[in-house]
Design a protein around this nucleic acid. Structure first.
Lengths: 334, 334
DNA sequence: TTGAAAGCGTTACCAT
DNA sequence: ATGGTAACGCTTTCAA
């Protein structure tokens, strides 16, 4: 039950491979009668073109690579799902790799994908990634790249949300609903996304002429545990926060749990707004008010951008997908 | 900045390709001096073997396919993550596809993966899949297959949990904690996983000599909405359930929300135990007691099984990974 | 130790 | 309308 090739078909029919090739691709130069016979035999024998021969011939693989910090985290999973669907729709296969949020793995993944001759790579870098030379290198190899979520200040196309504005808006919303002492729970400062969101947070405070209290700003490596300990520290302050802006779902869940575990109530004692996926918010109880990112659109835009590059467009584009605030139960109604 | 080939290297050094090939693979028959020169040039020029040429030559692609109903659902995402990691570790790339729980997509995905000449496929079928001929066909093509989670009664290797026993145990636990009227919230009956879990549920009732009330058994297509409406229907019965066994995370979340929305309390009025991932349980509030499946091990075992087949092992193996009950807040303590 | 050539499956170009 | 053949990049076998 070996895989059958064009040569086999040609042999069985006593004709030449090139005729078979033409017939199967619907090119003209084959008599309708012979074409029928060829198609029929191909069908019967379960002929499938060998993509490796095709790739070898054309130096084109119809394959893209996707690199994320954690496929098991809903936010990334939703984006990956959308990219994969779009890609499949456009005739591309997706090779998805997971870095476990580690820089070393990220470099390895990029390397493997280059070895695989993917036609392009869509990537959300790990939090530890500060050196982006592996991505710059891709540009030199003329391999299209699109970044999303964690987008550094480099000359590579990207899709991100309006981080500054959304953080400012969310902070304003917390303040307007009566919170006086807003804490900022973010990732590492070196990640532009975190810096931007902090920027928005600080802007809102400034607008309200609220002095900045640095002990309310927690920027550590994103993980459930760091979110937990940071929140508990915050709550033990002499003047603990009555509002929290969390920049990542993991941090928000951790904060939610920490607040509850200290016998405090949400939103009566502490309000929370977080950047998280709809699905995760929906599951929390009380449901966390969140900044809704259009993950579907992020995925679609990212693939479109990549496809344009694959098709020869050299321009660097930075797309901003607008996020909006969805109020749920973790904020007081005004 | 074109990709460089062995031929290019040979040309630059004024030698033959076959020598380059031998040198780069460390075969002997190349003088140490020449070997050095070749390696150095390859390094400098950034030579990478073309995997398509290699695949074409060997008819081996070092690639596997993974098919799941929904990568964005945590349970599958965790399993996929583990399989991908194991595969990468063993030098295999993973092509992950998402069927959106649809039979048609599933058939297409299988087809695409076969076209890609993946060396094997790990799949969790969609709920609608009753005809497994597309998988049987893979066996005829000598393409290794491993099933997980939703495993029909066919002669293909699989990894699943002990569905009957775990459901029986969970039901017993609900009964022991004082619940009298246990409802069963499951997927379609045609899925063996559901049937098995229901079997376990019924066994437990029988052991306790509790008559079966068919109106407490809800088996529909798994979705958040069906879980919601089924639960609401259950709660409106003249004698509503005071315990629920849910066979899928989505159903559990829906039930959780439905119970709460009716002003009832968990676990005081209604206890819940569900098959769901640790992460999802952790996020619910009150946290749902759950049957913990070792997703990590399921992923590892699935890949190992596939690899064995790829390496020529023809035996059909059915691996059972034991699940255990993790009590949280949605069940009364005895 | 090194070279030459055939072959993997497909396509493109030139002949017939 | 059809056939022959070279080429893609690599490995393998045989010859020098």
């Amino acid at each position: 039950m070996k895989r059958i090739s064009q040569r086999d078909i040609a042999h069985q029919l006593g004709i030449n491979v090139s005729t078979v090739s033409r017939a199967l691709r619907g090119l003209d130069g084959v008599s309708p009668k012979l074409k029928k016979r060829i198609e029929q035999l191909a069908e019967e024998a379960g002929y499938r073109p060998n993509p490796f021969a095709v790739s070898l011939r054309y130096d084109t693989t119809r394959t893209i690579g996707i690199i994320v910090p954690d496929v098991a985290f809903n936010h990334y999973a939703q984006i990956v799902k959308r990219i994969e669907a779009e890609a499949r729709n456009a005739g591309y296969m997706s090779i998805i790799t997971d870095t476990d949020d580690s820089y070393e793995n990220e470099v390895n993944c990029v390397d493997m994908l280059v070895n695989m001759h993917v036609e392009g790579i869509i990537i959300c870098p790990s939090q530890n990634t500060t050196d982006f030379s592996h991505l710059q290198h891709l540009r030199q190899l003329h391999i299209p790249v699109v970044l999303f979520d964690r987008v550094p200040n480099i000359d590579i196309s990207s899709v991100m949300i309006n981080d500054v504005a959304s953080a400012r808006y969310a902070t304003n919303c917390l303040l307007d609903s009566g919170a006086k002492r807003i804490a900022f729970l973010g990732g590492l400062n070196q990640v532009k996304q975190t810096a931007d969101r902090k920027h928005g947070y600080l802007e809102a405070l400034r607008e309200h002429e609220i002095p900045i209290r640095t002990e309310l700003v927690k920027c550590h490596h994103i993980s459930f545990n760091s979110g937990l300990s940071d929140t508990i520290e915050l709550l033990r302050l002499p003047e603990p926060p009555d509002g929290i802006l969390a920049t990542h779902g993991l941090l928000a869940i951790a904060a939610h749990q920490a607040v509850t575990s200290q016998g405090l109530r949400i939103p009566e004692n502490v309000s929370i707004i977080a950047y998280m996926s709809d699905w995760v918010s929906e599951m929390s109880n009380p449901r966390i008010s969140f900044i809704k990112q259009n993950l579907r659109e992020i995925g679609i835009k990212a693939f479109r951008l990549l496809l344009e590059q694959i098709n020869g467009d050299d321009s660097v584009q930075h797309i901003i997908v607008k996020a909006n605030l969805e109020l749920r139960d973790s904020t007081k109604t005004i």
